[in-house]
Computed example of a mutant assay.
Amino acid sequence: MTTTQLAPFPWSEVWGQDAAVETLRHAASDPAALSHAWLITGPPGSGRSTLAHAFAAALVAEHPGDEAVMRQVLAGTHPDVTALRTDKVIITIAEARALVERSYFAPSAGRYRVIVVEDADRMVERTSNVLLKALEEPPEQTVWVLCAPSEADLLPTIRSRVRALRLREPEVDDVARLITLRTGVDDATAEQAARHAQRHIGMAQRLATDDAARRRRDDTLRAVLGVRGVGTAVEVAGQIIQAATDDAKALTAERDAAERAALLRTVGVADGQAVPPALRSQISALEDDQRKRATRSLRDGIDRVLTDLQSLYRDVVMLQFGRDGELINRELRAELDAVAAAWPIERTLIALDAIAGTRESLERNVAPLLATESLLVTISSGRTP
């Protein structure tokens, strides 16, 4: 069993990152070991944000046993911790400037003021430059904690001003045990979810508890394996985008409605009452933020599909090299064997390259449907466009 289960609060929710936990626990307790700017990197689902907030809680608390203060930090209500997590495509300059301004305030109740940026990889160059001086010369009692998938996702000027801490990927068995503990699902379901999610804890939990998500993943992979030409490529691409769109709407619709209702209550507009002209700009700003969040949610949904497709053709490569003990999609073994036998390795590598290229296209704002159609045509033909 993963030893981090036994770590004291607030580290108890951090799984499979013993070395990182020990480094940050030591830094939080020994000022000589504390850097004033940190970068926590690791693959999606490795626990970057969980570790960052545990570190913030340990930094703010006056002593290790001060659980009340730590729980306040983890609940997002402590005045000395500012956290930014964006649901939009990018972090804006205005948001970065607000963080910098906040970073120069002295702590009001705890030992340190902590600024956590959970999605630091979503800063463009101009936004990153806003943070540079604050990272290079922060006030003595301010600690910055940035999170990103890898160091390469940030500018070299940012990387040179932080202490980097790389997380390891948890093992499938570790994630499965955690999912069973959290959700109560049986061991087989938890193992399959952890494997299909490629050890991403959040996605594994969703797959383990959502029958529709499991069916959608299986249907998508089988549909892609059945693509035989341009006609079916276009049809399946449309199905993938529609499913991702529906999923994004389901995830954001309830939150959008709640935000709009809360804003109207704040400004004194009753349910069903027309919005006064003077307040329409606020409603428009909220709707603009919600559209940006919906765009990000759709992109994230498509990226999850691309991750699943990557695992599919990764399995094919493994079989072509005679390694069948580490398959992610074991439930599709017959179909994988058929593709591995029919394709040369070069064609499988073209498919994997095309998936990576599609990710880059989506980051450049290429229309998702066109990018997905192009990907499936390339996979079905075995030829680069």
Results as ranks from 00 to 15, higher is better:
140 E>F: 02
296 R>D: 12
32 A>N: 11
326 E>S: 05
207 L>S: 03
207 L>R: 01
160 S>P: 02
290 Q>Y: 00
51 L>G: 03
110 G>Q: 13
16 G>H: 04
178 L>E: 05
330 R>V: 10
179 I>Q: 10
241 I>V: 15
71 R>K: 14
25 R>F: 02
127 T>H: 05
105 F>L: 13
209 T>E: 13
361 S>D: 15
167 L>H: 08
126 R>G: 07
217 R>H: 01
325 G>Q: 12
314 R>H: 14
223 A>D: 11
145 V>G: 10
128 S>K: 11
150 S>F: 04
116 V>F: 10
252 T>W: 00
180 T>F: 03
181 L>C: 00
173 D>C: 00
128 S>D: 12
266 T>E: 15
288 D>E: 15
52 A>C: 07
97 R>L: 05
352 L>K: 01
357 G>C: 01
228 R>P: 00
301 G>V: 02
19 A>H: 15
194 A>Y: 09
130 V>R: 04
216 R>C: 02
330 R>P: 01
187 D>W: 09
89 V>W: 04
369 L>Y: 09
151 E>D: 14
52 A>R: 03
272 G>K: 07
232 T>P: 02
80 D>I: 10
138 P>F: 07
294 A>H: 12
206 R>Y: 07
317 V>T: 08
269 V>A: 00
135 L>E: 09
94 A>F: 00
367 A>W: 00
270 A>Q: 14
43 P>Y: 03
264 L>H: 03
317 V>G: 04
191 E>F: 13
211 D>C: 00
248 A>G: 11
189 T>L: 11
244 A>S: 14
197 A>P: 08
70 M>A: 14
166 R>D: 06
197 A>D: 07
115 I>K: 01
290 Q>D: 02
221 L>F: 05
190 A>K: 06
222 R>G: 12
28 A>E: 05
319 L>C: 06
362 L>I: 01
244 A>Q: 10
271 D>K: 12
108 S>R: 07
291 R>F: 02
79 P>F: 13
330 R>Q: 13
